[in-house]
C-alpha cells in the first residue's frame, strides 16, 4: 500500500512536470516518462517475491517442472514489457514503432511457447 502511494505521488509529479515541458522540450518529456516507468518497475520488483514464493510452492508441492512453468512466466514478462514499450511509443506519437513492438512481442511469445508446443505435438504424434 505504501509503495502504491509513493508510485502515485511520483507519477503525479512527473506528469505535471511533463505537461509543463512537453511544448518546449518534448524529448525531455519522453525521457522523463521512460525514467518514471523504470523507477516504478524497479520499485515493484520488491513485490514480486510473493509471486516467486507461489512459483516455488507450486513447483515443490505439485511437482510442476520448470519446463512446464517457465514458458508461462516468460510469456507474462514478455507481455508486460511489450505493453509498456508500445505505450511509450504511442505517447511519443510513434504508432508504427508501437505496432512493431507489439508484433515483436507476439513473435517473442510464440518463440517462448514453441518448445512446449513442439513437445505437445510430438506427444500427440506419438499417440496417433
Amino acid at each position: 500500500m505504501e509503495l502504491m502511494f509513493r508510485v502515485s505521488a511520483s507519477v503525479i509529479c512527473v506528469l505535471l512536470v511533463s505537461l509543463l515541458i512537453r511544448r518546449t522540450n518534448p524529448e525531455m518529456a519522453a525521457l522523463l516518462g521512460l525514467a518514471v516507468v523504470a523507477v516504478i518497475l524497479l520499485a515493484s520488483l520488491r513485490l514480486s517475491s510473493g509471486i516467486q514464493e507461489l512459483h516455488g510452492f507450486v513447483r515443490d508441492k505439485f511437482g510442476l517442472s520448470e519446463t512446464v512453468m517457465q514458458p508461462v512466466i516468460k510469456c507474462v514478462a514478455a507481455a508486460i514489457v511489450t505493453r509498456l514499450t508500445a505505450d511509450l511509443c504511442k505517447d511519443s506519437s510513434q504508432s508504427a514503432a508501437a505496432a512493431a513492438v507489439e508484433l515483436a512481442g507476439s513473435l517473442c511469445a510464440l518463440g517462448i511457447i514453441m518448445p512446449l508446443l513442439m513437445t505437445m505435438l510430438r506427444m500427440v504424434g506419438g499417440l496417433l
Partner: peptide, 9 residues
C-alpha cells in the same frame, strides 16, 4: 499466448 502455453503445459 499465455493461455495457449498453459494449455500446452
Amino acid at each position: 499466448y499465455i493461455q495457449i502455453a498453459g494449455c500446452a503445459a
